[in-house]
Design a protein around this nucleic acid. Structure first.
Length: 97
DNA sequence: AATGAGGCCCTAA
DNA sequence: ATTAGGGCCTCAT
């Protein structure tokens, strides 16, 4: 273990329902603050065989949804169901820069 | 403010 | 061991 992937899963799994996180944050908590790219890549492939993690609660730092293995549209729907408001494919929050 | 280009980290083949 | 890809991020114009 001790793989970056394991840490990523752990962090993503710790995301409470109704909330969301960014790739950068996850990468940082995973131990590599510059590995947000790997995070997306890992979630993309790993989510295929390990969809037990809320990968749809992970968005970009700009507030955009980003992408989703099962479809960006599905991701938006899931987020909205959790209480997150999305506007034109972007999340309305106050964590803006 | 929006757009373009570059670069870092990780995994798989 | 090397190459290519990815759901990105940041800087510059």
């Amino acid at each position: 273990m001790a793989s970056f992937q394991e840490k990523v899963f752990r962090v993503v799994s710790q995301i409470p329902r109704g909330k969301f996180s960014t790739y950068k944050e996850i990468a940082k908590k995973a131990g590599s603050p510059r590995a947000w790219r790997a995070v997306g890549n890992i979630l993309n492939k790993s989510a295929s065989w390990r969809t037990k993690i809320p990968c749809h609660r992970v968005i970009k730092s700009d507030g955009k949804i980003g992408g989703y293995r099962y479809g960006i549209k599905k991701k938006i729907t899931l987020l909205k169901k959790e209480g997150i408001i999305i506007k034109n494919g972007k999340i309305t929050s106050r964590f803006k820069k």
